[in-house]
Structure formats: structure tokens, C-alpha cells
């Protein structure tokens, strides 16, 4: 009877030890993985800065081309410049989202902002003549309209929630 209870105790102790060590191993692995992910995300942030530099250069080249060819007067060309400019803002917002994520801050409002800038970019460059038929154009415009409506609703909800329960969000230039 005593032998039975002793072996039961030993068995329970062993099981606990194994479970604890497995748990410890999992935690260590998870931590290491998290660190690797953080490093990789830092690389992404670095690439975004390079991408931003390339996009600024591209804007400069586009500007130079417009000046040389004299297309500056054409509003469509100017909207093209705006398209590039909004692309730059998109990169800035994605950069901020990555930095905020790295610092463990809430990123949802930033993600909604990025999505809105993206859809605004598509809307201001939307031209009916780019589509083969009128039906395609109408379908595309409806799709944009639905996405924009959903994003505006999300923006409202997210920011209202943020106002109700202010949490630490990413602010550029914070120390």
C-alpha cells in the first residue's frame, strides 16, 4: 500500500517536472522567436526608410519631367503627382505602424488611417475611361464606395473608443 502511494507520488512529481520543463522550453523558444521577429521587423522599418527615399527621388524625377515637357498646366498630370505624394504618405504611415508595433503600442488606429489614405489615393485617381465598359466602372466605383464607407465607420468607432479609454499610442517625436 505504501509502495503504491510512493510510486504514485513519484509519478506525479515526474509528470510535474516534465510539464514544467516543457513549459519552460516553450517559453524560452517563444521569447527567442519573438526577438527574431523584432529584428526582422526592424529590417522592414529600415527598408521602408529606403523605400521612402526612393519614392522622394521618383517624385523629384516626375516633377523634373513635367517641367521639361511643359505638362505642368495639365490638371491630370498634377493629380498624378498627388498620387505619388499620397503613396509617400502611405509609406510614412506604414513606417509609423511598424515602429508602433515594435514598441508594443496600439496600432489599430494607425492601420485604419493607412487604409483610408490608400482608398483616397485610389479614389482621386479613379477615371471612368480606364475601364473597358461602363458596367465595370460602376462595379469598381461601388466597391470603392463600400470599402470607404466601412473604413469611415471603423475610423469613427476606433477613434471614439480611443477617446473613451485613452491608451498610449505612437506619437512621432516622443521620447
Amino acid at each position: 500500500m505504501t509502495e503504491d502511494s510512493e510510486s504514485k507520488e513519484t509519478y506525479e512529481k515526474l509528470t510535474k517536472d516534465v510539464s514544467r520543463s516543457r513549459h519552460g522550453l516553450e517559453a524560452t523558444l517563444a521569447k527567442k522567436m519573438e526577438r527574431i521577429m523584432d529584428y526582422l521587423q526592424l529590417v522592414v522599418v529600415f527598408i521602408l526608410v529606403i523605400l521612402f527615399g526612393i519614392a522622394v527621388f521618383d517624385l523629384g524625377v516626375e516633377l523634373y519631367r513635367l517641367i521639361i515637357t511643359g505638362q505642368f498646366y495639365d490638371p491630370i498630370s498634377l493629380i498624378g503627382i498627388l498620387e505619388t505624394a499620397l503613396l509617400l504618405f502611405l509609406i510614412v504611415e506604414v513606417f509609423r505602424t511598424s515602429v508602433a508595433h515594435l514598441e508594443g503600442l496600439k496600432v489599430l488606429p494607425l492601420v485604419v488611417d493607412v487604409a483610408i489614405i490608400g482608398i483616397v489615393r485610389s479614389i482621386i485617381t479613379f477615371r471612368l475611361s480606364d475601364f473597358q465598359s461602363m458596367n465595370e466602372a460602376v462595379l469598381a466605383s461601388l466597391a470603392y464606395a463600400i470599402i470607404l464607407s466601412v473604413l469611415i465607420a471603423s475610423f469613427f468607432i476606433v477613434h471614439r473608443q480611443q477617446r473613451k479609454a485613452p491608451e498610449k499610442h505612437y506619437r512621432k517625436g516622443d521620447d
Binding site: L42, V92, G173
Partner: peptide, 24 residues
């Protein structure tokens, strides 16, 4: 320690990005 390092690097990159934004 690690998070401080990320924070430092990301803030430094932020400064470069600010400079590019000025050019923009």
C-alpha cells in the same frame, strides 16, 4: 534591454525619415 535597442534604432530611423519628408 532588447526593446530599448529597437526603440533607439527606430527613433534614429524616424529622424532620417523626417529629413526625407522635408525634401518631399
Amino acid at each position: 534591454m532588447g526593446s530599448e535597442l529597437y526603440r533607439d534604432i527606430s527613433r534614429k530611423l524616424d529622424k532620417y525619415e523626417n529629413f526625407l519628408e522635408l525634401i518631399f
